[in-house]
């Protein structure tokens, strides 16, 4: 193990390490803690210039205020309406593409695979004008469907890479045995491969949920009204609306960040497995 395990070092080093850990964490998360604290500060504190001292009281009403006086409840609902179908769509498409590219050897197999991989790296701006134009022509501009369809298509790139690499790691003998038994390819996919892919599907679902929930650029390009916009775009317009009302902006930020944060802490193992895929060989 590198570095040398702290247990093998001197007593004083061990104590220093245990003291340094919380201090380092405090510094690292400092901006976030500041915002969390601000979100609980009554407006009167901010008006009197009490930004950093103890709040005169804990103001949970900031959170109630944000819900009462802004569309944040609607934005959050919009985000769920967008994110959940996208996760389902992406997982469905990429399980199939990953299966095709991981199991079969055919002409053009590598070329198709690398188009998915390369497409996943392009800057969004080169897609912006044509995709927006197409969405307008389909009558889907400023709809959840229009934004969701794009996300499903784009995320398929990364997810195909992920699924294909996972399927490559499955025992191929299983599939060959099934073929010898005369099981059709579609049944192999559904009854043999899909059940084995549950960990990959879980990891991808958590990742895609977070990516889409946090996505901002396409939300501003393809949606405009508060009844459709997801919470990232909504939060930005809230920021314009609440100039200098930092306690409300902070409360809104914390609310918007909550779903992916909960997802991360509940599904941590899957989340990290998904993100670090390929970091070891």
């Amino acid at each position: 193990m590198f570095p040398r395990p702290i247990e093998q070092t001197s007593r004083s080093t061990q104590i220093m390490y245990k003291v340094a850990l919380p201090i380092a964490l405090f510094i690292w998360l400092f901006p976030l803690l500041g915002v969390a604290l601000t979100s609980l500060r009554p407006a009167s504190d901010l008006a009197q210039g009490n930004y950093f001292g103890m709040p005169s009281s804990i103001a949970f009403e900031n959170y109630a205020d944000v819900f009462r006086n802004s569309a944040i409840g609607q934005y959050i609902l919009n985000s769920f309406k967008l994110t959940i179908p996208v996760v389902i769509g992406v997982v469905a498409l990429s399980t199939m593409t990953g299966f095709a590219l991981g199991i079969y050897k055919f002409r053009g197999c590598m070329a198709v695979f690398f188009i998915f991989v390369a497409g996943n790296f392009v800057p969004f701006q080169i897609l912006m004008v044509p995709v927006r134009d197409m969405t307008v022509n389909l009558g889907l501009i400023n709809t959840t469907a229009g934004l969701g369809l794009f996300h499903i298509a784009f995320q398929t790139g990364f997810c195909t890479l992920f699924m294909r690499n996972f399927i490559k790691g499955l025992p191929f003998e299983l599939i060959e045995a099934a073929r010898v038994e005369g099981v059709s390819e579609i049944k192999i996919f559904w009854y043999i491969v899909v059940p084995l892919m549950r960990p990959a599907i879980a990891a991808l679902s958590v990742l895609v949920f977070t990516f889409i929930w946090n996505e901002y650029f396409w939300a501003t390009v393809l949606t405009t009204s508060a009844s459709i916009q997801p919470v990232t775009a909504g939060l930005n317009s809230l920021n314009g609306q609440y100039v200098a009302q930092w306690q409300l902006v902070s409360a809104g930020s914390i609310i918007a960040a909550l779903p992916p944060v909960l997802m991360f802490f509940l599904m941590q193992k899957h989340f990290i497995a998904g993100l670090t895929m390929g970091a070891v060989k």
């Binding site: 498409l93 990429s94 199939m96 593409t97 299966f99 095709a100 590219l101 198709v112 188009i115 998915f116 497409g119 392009v122 080169i126 897609l127 004008v129 044509p130 995709v131 197409m134 369809l149 794009f150 499903i152 298509a153 784009f154 398929t156 790139g157 195909t160 996919f189």
Partner: peptide, 16 residues
């Protein structure tokens, strides 16, 4: 198996 994913990816990413 590739068709749905490929069509979506082509329409929204490659062709644009």
């Amino acid at each position: 198996f590739l068709a749905p994913g490929m069509i979506m990816f082509a329409v929204y990413v490659i062709i644009p």
